Amino acid sequence: MKTRILQALFFILLFCCYSTIAQNKYEREYRIKKSQFPEEAIILISEKLEGAKRLKFYKETDSAKTSFEAKFKKDRLWYSVEFDESGKLEDIEILVKEVDLPSDTYSAILKYLDKSFSKYRIKKIQQQYPTNEGEELNKTIKNAFQNLILPSINYELIIGGKKNQEYFDYEILFDSQGNFIRIRKSLPPNYDHVLY
């Protein structure tokens, strides 16, 4: 009888630990050469890269997938264009500040952060143009590079937040109205290039 209770307790604890770990999607970003970037992706955004400054290519890996990202500055804005492994566009992100968000949206975001964290600091805000089913890729690209405020955009925040006496970095996604979509813990930056 005791062994069955212990076995049941063991499986319950194992399941709880597994489900807690599964909610943390750890992501690492590595800089790569242009030749290692998917060719289809470069062809898709090549006309937008004209006049771009500080163009860099990255490969991101996490527990669920691998993706590629081109980061650059154009027309005084910082862009991040993300693709899947096959070179299909996933989203375009623009680095923005608090004043660039509609006031109602920003108020809703702050209300969520105040409720969820005992302390927090916003480190980065990105305006995200995800690809939508049924919408042409060229339209998504055009909307992003015109920096349009549309109902289909999202806002991605990187914050340092304190919950239950623990301080972590979080990546939080909100819709265009400031409604919460998802949250995940974020790993610190990769410092593999630093030699000790």
Rank of each mutant, 00 (worst) to 15 (best):
I32R: 04
A22M: 06
K25W: 05
K33V: 04
F15G: 12
S35M: 10
S35L: 10
V96R: 05
D104M: 10
Y26T: 13
V96N: 06
L55I: 14
Y26C: 10
A108N: 15
P38S: 02
E29F: 00
A70P: 02
K33S: 09
K74W: 07
Y26E: 13
D91L: 02
F72D: 04
K59A: 03
A52T: 01
W78K: 10
T61C: 08
A52I: 02
S63R: 10
K97S: 12
E93R: 11
R31G: 07
S67L: 06
P102T: 00
L95Y: 08
I32K: 04
E90S: 10
L49A: 02
D100V: 03
I45V: 14
R76N: 14
E39R: 05
L101K: 07
L89D: 06
L101H: 06
I32L: 07
L101C: 14
Y18G: 14
A64S: 12
A70Q: 03
F68N: 00
E40D: 13
A22S: 12
Y58R: 03
E82A: 10
P102F: 01
Y79M: 05
E93S: 14
R28P: 00
R76P: 02
W78N: 11
T61M: 11
W78S: 10
D91H: 12
D84W: 10
E40Y: 11
C17Y: 15
S107H: 06
S107G: 07
K34Y: 12
D84T: 12
F37M: 05
P102G: 00
E47H: 11
E47M: 09
K65C: 06
D104I: 09
K71P: 03
D75A: 13
S107Y: 05
A22T: 06
F83D: 04
T20S: 12
I94Q: 08
E85L: 13
L55M: 07
A52C: 02
L77A: 09
Y30H: 13
A22V: 05
E27I: 07
E93L: 07
E39K: 07
D62W: 00
E27H: 08
S107W: 01
K73R: 05
T105Q: 01
I92A: 07
S67A: 09
Y18E: 13
E27C: 11
S63K: 11
N24K: 12
I94A: 08
S19H: 13
V96L: 07
V96Q: 09
K25N: 14
L44M: 14
E50C: 04
R31W: 04
V96G: 08
S67P: 04
E40M: 09
E90K: 15
T20Y: 15
E85Q: 15
S63L: 13
L101Y: 06
A108P: 03
S80C: 05
G87T: 07
K33D: 08
K56F: 02
E50F: 04
L89G: 07
L89F: 05
S19T: 15
E39C: 00
E29R: 02
S19I: 15
Y26A: 11
Q36N: 07
S19W: 11
S107T: 11
